[in-house]
Design a protein around this nucleic acid. Structure first.
Length: 155
DNA sequence: GCCAACGTTGGC
DNA sequence: GCCAACGTTGGC
């Protein structure tokens, strides 16, 4: 089993939105970066877990955990000219972008803020902490996963 | 294939 | 709102 971190802007889709979704499942739409897509399409497997990260908001940080519950399949929003995620260069015969379904696992009582992740020197190799990192989906090592869970328990 | 221009991300 | 960092686009 592998671990991941998935970013979402809470204004667009927050962990509260996921909790309120039918069956607490959502399709993870809108990934439009090849590296992130490859992580999702080829790197992930059903049963993997991911940190849900709120980005571009007042206090960015990890707010909970989700689980991968589907194989990858074409992201329908790429074909929808009304959608912000529309990609005119993509065709149903040859889709560029893929999604998976993820399910709510838990929401932390208090988020683990980015500032706390940065302050924890043992997490220095986390991809999200590297300078200029913009990937919306990144792998997390088992060690770092456990270290972060320990930070949650201390809250 | 190079690279300048442009758009986006996301913390602050 | 600012801006650094990065990815993509498109002319050549």
């Amino acid at each position: 089993m592998q671990y991941w971190l998935m970013k979402s802007e809470p204004e667009t889709f927050s962990i509260e939105d996921l909790q309120q979704a039918p069956k607490k499942i959502t399709c993870w739409e809108g990934v439009r970066n090849y590296q992130a897509r490859n992580f999702m399409a080829e790197g992930m497997a059903i049963g993997d877990q991911a940190f849900f990260y709120h980005s571009n908001c007042k206090i960015p940080g990890i707010v909970g955990i989700v689980k991968v519950v589907s194989e990858s399949y074409p992201d329908h929003t790429q074909f929808d000219s009304e959608s912000d995620y529309y990609d005119p260069k993509s065709t149903t015969a040859k889709p560029r972008w893929y999604m998976r379904d993820v399910k709510f696992v838990k929401r932390f009582k208090e988020l683990v803020p980015l500032s706390a992740l940065k302050a924890n020197k043992s997490l220095a190799d986390m991809q999200i902490l590297q300078r200029g990192n913009r990937l919306s989906i990144t792998p997390v090592s088992k060690k770092n996963w456990q270290r972060i869970l320990e930070m949650v328990e201390k809250v």
